[in-house]
Design a protein around this nucleic acid. Sequence first.
DNA 1: TCTGGGGTCCTAGGACCC
DNA 2: TCTGGGGTCCTAGGACCC
Length: 426
Amino acid sequence: MAARRPRALHAVRTIFHADMDAFFVSVEELFDPGLKGKPVVVGGRKDERGVVAAASYAARSYGVHSAMPLRTAAKLCPQAVFLEGHPERYREYSQRIHEILLEFTPQVSMASIDEAYLDMTGTERLWGPPLRAATLLHDRIGARTGLNCSIGIATSKMLAKICSDFAKPNGIAWVPPGMEAAFLAPLHVSRIPGVGRVTEERLHEIGVRKIGDLARLDEDFLLRRFGQWGLALAGKARGADAGAWFAGEIGAYEDPRSISHEHTFSEDVSDAALLEATLARQAEKVGRRLREHRLFARTVELKLRYSDFTTLSRSRTLQEATDVDADLIAVSRELFRTAWKKGAAVRLIGMGVSGLDEAQGQISLLEGEKKERARQALAAVDRIRDRFGEKSVQLAAGMTADDRERVHENPAGLPGKDPRSLRKSR
DNA sequence: TCTGGGGTCCTAGGACCC
DNA sequence: TCTGGGGTCCTAGGACCC
């Protein structure tokens, strides 16, 4: 078969994937330089339920890595510094980095808080050839933020992402056009973004270990065996941005598809009032974010995880999309009351919305007026929270009976919103 | 290995409609 | 009333990513 050549109409793209090195840990080091060089773990205290969000390179040398339970990390590296972390700082630095990236091209997509894709196609006159442009970008991020990053350069998003891994730490790596297949062939299939533990095992079953093995397989066979995902895999093995994973223009704004909040209790909870109060608080947060995005939700979902880790979800699709807290609270509570085994110990509770739309859809005039008044009241609450903080206003549904009592006892000092603080006082 | 939180996408079965 | 096929929506669960 002849080698696949890019068609003249489709000029070869130049994609950068910029990925911050140990991002959370590095930001912590900016605020506390004494941490530099030490084993540092961000994610929570060493005896907490939870996992490692980021580990310094010193901690990694003990086998600590992200997604590992904190308690395991503490066993591997007891002398590590364990930090809760500062999400606001990470968001702020992420935004600064985004601004720097935009100086190089308007075609920037933040893929997460610490990584981004840039479409640098056609910027050679401005920034020079890819390696030079990447060096300028790398050094500018370092100079302005004090943070290290790694940059992968390739002809597709997927390849650029794999490539930035090779550049770590603090480097730049490039797969020149035409070298894609040769670069990929010797790599293990698990390096393909989207191939996790399960897919890797299924591929091993059919004798596929290297990406080169995958590239040699027949597309029809992959389609039969893995469905649409199989076709996407075939494309990825050739270095293409196949499947939904890498679809979409770099730099195009996209509304979120879903919004959710969940919480794992430090100890399992079987108190209905506390569970419902937690749920109501989450519904308020979700409602608030819907209004920030000016979106309305059609589907409300509840998530429960019992102490044995069995997890269930229940959802309901509404006739009318909503962005009103009271609706979200009522629906999620109903789902909870139907789904929850009375008295069962709950490890995690959460709720979320999907089926998001900019328009609210058809509603009757009367209903419309009622909803509009509710919406205006919520907008006022949102504004007050903006000025005085999240705790300054609470709707009655978000409180437990204990809370209400305390408000009566002490109208000036509203209770804290952390469910843990509620339990302690029990 | 005692397993977070916030997301995206995919699959599969059943309901319902034409 | 012995029974097809396709499309779309809804629901539940799961893989995967950072």
